[in-house]
Amino acid sequence: MNYRPIPGLNIYSEFSHSSNTKDSSDTTANIDKSGNAFKIRAIGNKNPSRVLLEYERISPDFITLAGSATPDREKFKSTWRYKINKKVTTHLGFLWYRDNLDGQLAAGKNVYRPSIGITYKKAFGRKHNVVDLTYKFDKTNTTNDITNHIIDLSINDRFGKVYNTTNISYYKYKTDGVVQDSHEFRANTEFSGRIKKDDYVLKPSLRLGTWSNKNELTSSLDKYYEASVGLGFDIAKYKISSKIKVGENRANRDLSDDSKKLFASLNIYYRPKKFFSFKRTMIYARAFYNDFTYTTNNKDFRENSVIVGIKIRF
């Protein structure tokens, strides 16, 4: 049911009932299961604000073979987006859900996920600059409670013909019962460009990244570094696209071997207008080279692969 009582407000609800009988065999009794699913959603959308409130409850015995409902779930979700001005938009979100609605499980789950974010466009007077900053908290009450924090900063910009995307993230994962207690820090930046001349397009790219993981349970610190350069080459006229990429990933681990992976990949795709009587065809070739080096020399290995294929859609 869809109801719009006043401008910008849309209320949507649905209710389903399922009744199933599982025919086990001739000698054992059939199993009957029936359940209900209910969902209501209200969206108020009129600039500068958009508010969503959603509640759903799906009983454990609600069986759907082709639907999108997850049985044994009670959920409430709310989001509020507010455009302070043309440049700044804020987001507030809250998700709560639980299972074990009939107390049928030994241990159920109660999950709370609030989040807050801000998007700042054209920061520093730069036309193409977009800064996104989000914080997410993830709390799960279950046998071993889980508490995670995620802070993510993403900056997109364009300098002349060069596009840049930079991500900096911090994660804190903790699961009670001495299961997990770790911090992660990730940072990566990618520069890419697009140079077009007639039907030819060159797409160079450079990516640099680092990732560290501090495990408080084992008092160990693992550090990872990644660097790669790529060059794409497309010929739009002939529907050919290709990319070659070369890079290195290094891992420095406290509790096990350090490692280095040198990789290279080449991908070529060609979509002929017509291939015999087939109109939607893609011919592709992929080649990979991976060279792994470890502190313990006898673990070193290398793998090469070449794949040539054709995809035909009927």
């Binding site: 999108s68 998700l95 859900y97 799960t140 071993n144 001495v178 299961v179 997990q180 084992t218």
Partner: peptide, 16 residues
Amino acid sequence: ANNTGSSSSGNIDSGS
């Protein structure tokens, strides 16, 4: 669908 979200560790027990 079961995870209803991005947490990749929701149903996974892990440790050493």
